[in-house]
Design a protein around this nucleic acid. Structure first.
Lengths: 101, 101
DNA sequence: TATACTTACTTACATAAAGTAATTAAATAA
DNA sequence: TTATTTAATTACTTTATGTAAGTAAGTATA
């Protein structure tokens, strides 16, 4: 594989994670599955953008959406294997933060 | 130190790295020092925002600006120790990208 | 039957961030 | 005196995000 292709992948990943709220959403999901309203209160993201981001992350295969047919309806978001594989990235960031901030 | 303080640091770090172009700028600087115009051509960032980001990163102590009094003037940007300490975050992202993208 | 309640969105509109392209400043060289 | 080069900065446009109200589905309550 050519270097440029490797770069393309890294750049795609860095661009994806560089989207506002993305790493914070994943960070929340590493702890446990979360409901829509839980993100709103815990990270302060607006419902409009949260809805947009969760759809993007679902499309990328990073997040999975599960609907529970209760009353009222409950929707939970979890990480896929691809999403869980991002844990080292978040942990490295955590270590950096604890040492340098 | 309380958990919430730990969380504050991670969240600050994730928010910082979640700003558009930030990780791509650091990724470029891990390879070698870069000039203003080199970022513009290599990652496609606009001059207006590049100028803004470099100032923010300088203020955060992640990037250092060096002026060389040549003709025409040459300005180089390098990573500080704090900036270099982000390398594991970028490498983890790189590994994830190579496995999952 | 009708009204209210709850969650998970969606929509219309306002504000903030980013892109574009022209301009400025400084130091020369032609 | 005019042109060249780099590193910005500025005015203006487009895109992204925030805000707050509204919708849909499925009950429970009056």
């Amino acid at each position: 594989m050519a270097d440029s292709a490797v770069c393309d992948k890294v750049e795609k990943a860095l661009t994806l994670m560089g989207k506002r709220w993305v790493t914070l959403i994943i960070y929340q999901l590493l702890e446990s599955p979360k409901r829509f309203c839980e993100f709103e209160s815990s990270i302060g993201i607006s419902g409009r953008v949260l809805s947009e981001r969760l759809k993007e992350l679902e499309k990328e295969g990073i997040v999975q959406r599960k609907v529970y047919d209760e009353t009222p309806v409950r929707v939970e978001y979890t990480l896929t294997d691809k999403g869980k594989a991002m844990e080292p990235v978040i942990r490295c960031t955590q270590e950096w933060a604890e040492e340098w901030l």
